[in-house]
Amino acid sequence: MTTPQINQFLQDCIIHDDASDTGITPDAFYGLYVSWCALNLKVPLPDPAFRTALRLAGLRMERNGKNKKSAFHGLRMTGLAAVDYILNSNP
């Protein structure tokens, strides 16, 4: 994934929301990315390479003290890829 591509993905799909308690889990972040790739006719990277790209873009996972789950806190999904991911990931 090139820097412009990850930047475009983040611009299209992520909103900074410090009021959010939950953030985005790593699995949900990857699912959102796969949805974005499908909508934009791009081939998705494997999950480990995607997580590396997020780290290189300056995003860090943190553990939530309440439920001990890792997430990208202060972020929220938005846009068409978010709708696609949510509709296709819930039974």
Results as ranks from 00 to 15, higher is better:
Met1Gly: 14
Met1Asn: 08
Thr3Arg: 15
Thr3Leu: 14
Thr3Tyr: 06
Pro4Leu: 14
Gln5Leu: 15
Asn7Phe: 06
Asn7Val: 13
Gln8Met: 11
Gln8Gly: 06
Gln8Lys: 14
Phe9Trp: 12
Leu10His: 08
Leu10Lys: 05
Leu10Gly: 07
Gln11Lys: 15
Cys13His: 04
Ile14Pro: 01
Ile15Cys: 06
Ile15Leu: 13
His16Trp: 02
Asp17Asn: 13
Asp17Glu: 09
Asp18Arg: 08
Ala19Trp: 00
Ala19His: 01
Ala19Ser: 09
Thr22Val: 09
Gly23Ala: 03
Gly23Asp: 03
Gly23Cys: 06
Ile24Thr: 04
Ile24Phe: 01
Thr25Glu: 04
Pro26Ala: 00
Ala28Pro: 06
Tyr30Asn: 01
Tyr30Cys: 00
Gly31Phe: 08
Leu32Glu: 06
Tyr33Asn: 05
Val34Gly: 04
Ser35Met: 10
Trp36Asn: 05
Cys37Asp: 03
Ala38Ile: 07
Ala38Thr: 10
Leu39Pro: 07
Asn40Gln: 04
Asn40His: 05
Leu41Pro: 05
Lys42Leu: 12
Val43Phe: 09
Val43Glu: 08
Val43Met: 06
Pro44Met: 01
Pro44Gly: 00
Pro46Lys: 14
Pro48Cys: 04
Pro48Asn: 08
Ala49Cys: 10
Phe50Tyr: 11
Phe50Val: 11
Arg51Phe: 06
Thr52Ser: 10
Arg55Val: 03
Arg55Trp: 00
Leu56Gln: 09
Leu59Arg: 01
Asn64Arg: 14
Asn64Trp: 02
Gly65Lys: 07
Gly65Ile: 02
Asn67Thr: 14
Lys68His: 10
Lys69Met: 06
Ser70Leu: 13
Ala71Lys: 03
Phe72Ile: 07
His73Ile: 15
His73Arg: 15
Leu75Gly: 05
Leu75Trp: 08
Arg76Thr: 15
Arg76Ser: 13
Thr78Arg: 12
Gly79Ile: 04
Leu80Trp: 13
Leu80Glu: 15
Ala81Ile: 11
Ala82Ile: 07
Val83Trp: 15
Ile86Glu: 11
Ile86Pro: 01
Leu87Gly: 09
Leu87Lys: 15
Leu87Arg: 14
Leu87Cys: 09
Asn88Trp: 01
Ser89Pro: 01
Asn90Pro: 04
